[in-house]
């Protein structure tokens, strides 16, 4: 039937695209779309782009905080306490006269460090153990599987609170604690990916070539599992930032003399501040929420691009 029929049909955009492709193939100029495809797919997800933009802006603002604000976030001016937003202090001042905007910008340094640092720490531990033991299997594999089961059976906050009491309250300890409590899911994820990938033919081929385990596992298999790992890292970052805020509410987070979003927000516990002085707490609440939201959008976008089965 068909050639004639196709010719008769009005050419669609798809036809044009295919024509273009054919043309390029014939001229030999067609290149394999590599990672660009994932990127372009991500770029087509408006929320993810918006999220990425916000996260980038916040990170840049925190890193280059001195360029963004002229105020020292620790500069106390008792005679200027609880002043509402004005041209001088665009988000007003807090209970001891510090500039709220400056505190949020500088606070971002620590909060993002805690969130991203812990997530990367957890990824480093989880992924390396997961990749190696998942590929090798055997005794080490089952040992770590048990350990991860033990860690993951704890309700998260209970484990975190326990570790906070053991290690004490400090910035470094908090990152360590989040890392210790967060590596389990990344380990499981990586291990599962390894288990399925190691039976692939290309891996068998590599093995037949006599490449060492380490190279096969980290250089040849792991990159193929990176997608879901990236998604998990972004989502963990968001979770840790929220957890930092929760812990500072309980008075068990980063020591209160270090400005973090959670510590700035903590003053909302004082009902007088909560009801009468919105500028002291609301901006940090909005910042945390927007930042976490933005990361979640990015994570979602990443998931969609890397997971072909997710068509939502």
């Amino acid at each position: 039937m068909s050639d004639a029929k196709i010719m008769m049909r009005r050419p669609t955009r798809l036809d044009k695209k295919f024509d273009l492709l054919r043309e390029k193939t014939e001229q030999g100029t067609l290149k394999a779309a590599s990672s660009n495809r994932a990127l372009s797919k991500l770029a087509s997800n408006k929320l993810a782009v918006l999220g990425l933009a916000f996260v980038t802006i916040m990170i840049l603002a925190s890193v280059f905080a001195p360029l963004v604000t002229q105020y020292d976030p620790q500069k106390v001016d008792l005679r200027m306490m609880l002043k509402p937003p004005s041209a001088d202090h665009i988000l007003g001042t807090d209970k001891i006269g510090r500039d709220v905007f400056a505190r949020i910008i500088y606070g971002g340094r620590i909060s993002i460090l805690v969130g991203l640092g812990s997530a990367l720490g957890a990824a480093l531990i989880g992924v390396s153990i997961g990749a190696y033991t998942g590929y090798k299997g055997g005794w080490w594999d089952s040992t770590f599987l048990r350990i991860s089961e033990v860690v993951m059976s704890f309700p998260q906050i209970i484990l975190v609170l326990m570790l906070v009491t053991i290690l004490g309250q400090s910035l470094m300890n908090l990152i360590i604690i989040f890392t210790l409590t967060g590596w389990g899911s990344l380990y499981r994820l990586t291990r599962a990916q390894m288990l399925s990938l190691r039976e692939e033919e290309y891996v068998q081929a590599l093995r037949a070539f006599g490449l060492n385990t380490f190279t096969i596992c980290f250089k040849h298999i792991l990159p193929n599992a990176l997608g879901p790992i990236m998604v998990n890292i972004t989502l963990s970052t968001a979770m840790f930032i929220l957890q930092e805020a929760g812990l500072s509410f309980l008075g068990l987070g980063v020591p209160l003399n270090i400005p973090t979003w959670g510590n700035i927000l903590n003053v909302a516990q004082d009902l007088r501040i909560l009801q009468n002085y919105w500028w002291v707490w609301l901006p940090s609440a909005v910042t945390i929420s927007l930042f976490v939201l933005a990361i979640n959008f990015v994570g979602d976008g990443l998931r969609d691009t890397t997971d072909p089965t997710m068509q939502g």
């Binding site: 620790q74 106390v76 001891i96 020591p255 209160l256 003399n257 004082d270």
Partner: peptide, 25 residues
């Protein structure tokens, strides 16, 4: 929170005369 605020204020006053101070609970 008041204690933390007071500590921060004292820290600022001390730093003004050249004394470094850090506080912890």
């Amino acid at each position: 929170q008041l204690t933390v605020d007071l500590m921060t204020a004292i820290q600022a006053y001390l730093s003004d005369v050249g004394i470094k101070m850090n506080f912890r609970k």
